[in-house]
Design a protein around this nucleic acid. Structure first.
Lengths: 156, 156
DNA sequence: CCTACTTTCTACAGCGACTGTAGAAGCAAG
DNA sequence: CTTGCTTCTACAGTCGCTGTAGAAAGTAGG
């Protein structure tokens, strides 16, 4: 089985068939050779490349950054500084995200624990939402989804 | 200044003009009366509604859920159980997200701390990405961006 | 060989929550 | 009157896919 179909590549890499074609379109994978009837033919190297991509996606890297990392991987001997700084930047983005989510967690906890469950007129959840002043110092307003993925991998 | 323009409403609420129009289209705001020349005319109640929306968005609620919360707010006397359970569900989603991001943080830390910064052939970052087996037990594969917002509020 | 089923192909629309663009019109001040 | 700001509508783009439609090709059983 030296010639690998797209479906087989999907099974081996854990990336869906449609997603593989999407990655090709986005330049993460080279256009593969085709069979006489026009079907994509992959090899083990491509499957490994897909594994790389999947892992990087699981870690929340953006496709654009993954393309850069793949290019670096293909240049043995080149400095790994770009890969390193990319990973570091990503790490600090993840940390910021965690901090923001923790602040959210705190305020949501206060909201749901403070509600006496009678009716909407006295609902702490709704009151709190209506009156930002009650917690304006507690949760962040200023960082928008710059890191929205993490732990991807629905995979087939 | 009883009649509030969309720009003024944006300034007061911290929500961009374009986003206000977008919220109207999505049914979070009623279609406001218009001036002779067709411009939207708001009142303080709408500005407060915008504040509610903004706060809920800052907390990461989805627009669909915010619409539900707004409907509940408008029905004093109704049970707040739906609002409560919505907030609780959201809270547990936030917690899951934090846990996933912490796992990511751990692996990213290992990646960047283990790199000796020589060249790509020995780069720990790239090696780790290429070989998922090194950490397959450490980070989650299975939960995809079901909670991707948090701490929004770029706001004008 | 025929039929049924699966896989693959292309091309395009949709998700969520906006943001940005284009082009036109209204409005206020100098 | 001109300049410059605001507002209007309508639509495309962001990100990382997912889902759809319709067609062609491959595979298995009778």
């Amino acid at each position: 089985m030296r010639e690998i179909s797209i479906g087989e590549a999907a099974r081996r890499s854990g990336i869906k068939v449609t997603t593989i074609r999407f990655y090709e379109e986005r330049g993460l994978l080279p256009a593969p050779p085709r069979s006489d009837s026009g079907r994509r033919i992959y090899d083990t190297a491509t499957v490994e490349r897909l594994g790389f991509i999947r892992h990087a996606r699981d870690l929340g890297f953006r496709l654009e950054d993954i393309a850069d990392l793949l290019a670096l991987q293909g240049q043995p001997g080149a400095s790994c500084a770009p890969a390193d700084s990319l990973a570091r930047r990503h790490l600090s983005a993840v940390r910021e995200r965690i901090a923001a989510l923790r602040a959210l967690e705190t305020e949501l906890e206060r909201m749901v624990s403070g509600c006496d469950h009678t009716d909407t007129a006295h609902c702490r959840v709704i009151e709190t939402l209506a009156d930002h002043a009650r917690c304006i110092a507690d949760h962040p307003t200023g960082l928008t989804g710059e890191l929205d993925t993490a732990g991807a991998g629905k995979a087939d």
